[in-house]
């Protein structure tokens, strides 16, 4: 499983297929396999998936989130809030998620997640711009952050839906 996480170059495509078929650590293969059988373009919400995620994976995500937030805090303290703000859009959470998804499902699914994160990152720009503009206009903080979060959702989901309308919203099909 360690090799899956590190992703050696030579066996990358074989591993994609291999991981789609097998579950090395017994933690998520059923999910991966059931997902493969469904239509790759079907949007669905499955709360039961939460129960299938190992506590260790939640801890890893929390640790990455806390770590990045602490890093942003330290940089802001040392170099000022504007430079520290760069790290509010540091992709460490995505990196953690990509390695977890690659381990649990496949590298192909990690690539799908990275493609989707592009839309979210476009939304992040909107979030930051709206926050800065609203606070410059002396909006209350809660209103500025609420508006910025709404803009993030509209921009990122809008970009996703636009891509979907052009036939690029589904997941990359399994190789072969």
């Amino acid at each position: 499983m360690t090799n899956d996480l590190r992703g050696d170059h030579d066996d990358r495509d074989d591993r994609d297929d291999h991981d789609d078929r097998d579950d090395h650590d017994g933690s998520g293969g059923d999910r991966g396999r059931s997902d493969e059988r469904r239509d790759d373009d079907e949007v669905r919400l499955a709360p039961r998936e939460l129960g299938r995620t190992r506590p260790r994976d939640w801890l890893i995500r929390f640790a990455f989130g806390a770590g990045v937030s602490a890093l942003a805090g330290v940089v802001a303290t040392v170099a000022g809030p504007r430079f520290g703000g760069l790290f509010l859009a540091f992709p460490a959470i995505l990196m953690a998620s990509l390695t977890l998804v690659a381990k649990k499902e496949s590298v192909r699914q990690a690539r799908n997640e990275a493609r989707g994160a592009t839309f979210g990152a476009v939304g992040l720009f909107g979030f930051a711009a709206v926050t800065a503009a609203a606070l410059a206009g002396r909006w209350p903080l809660w209103a500025a952050l609420a508006a910025a979060t709404a803009v993030w959702a509209v921009l990122s989901l809008g970009c996703y839906l636009l891509a979907r309308a052009f036939g690029a919203g589904g997941d990359e099909p399994p190789a072969g």
Partner: peptide, 22 residues
């Protein structure tokens, strides 16, 4: 909870760290 993975990926670039930090 969300599928397909490409849509779930949107939430991997959510303003989570920004909201907490701000």
């Amino acid at each position: 909870m969300i599928a397909p993975k490409r849509l779930a990926g949107v939430f991997s670039a959510a303003p989570s760290v920004a909201l907490g930090g701000m």
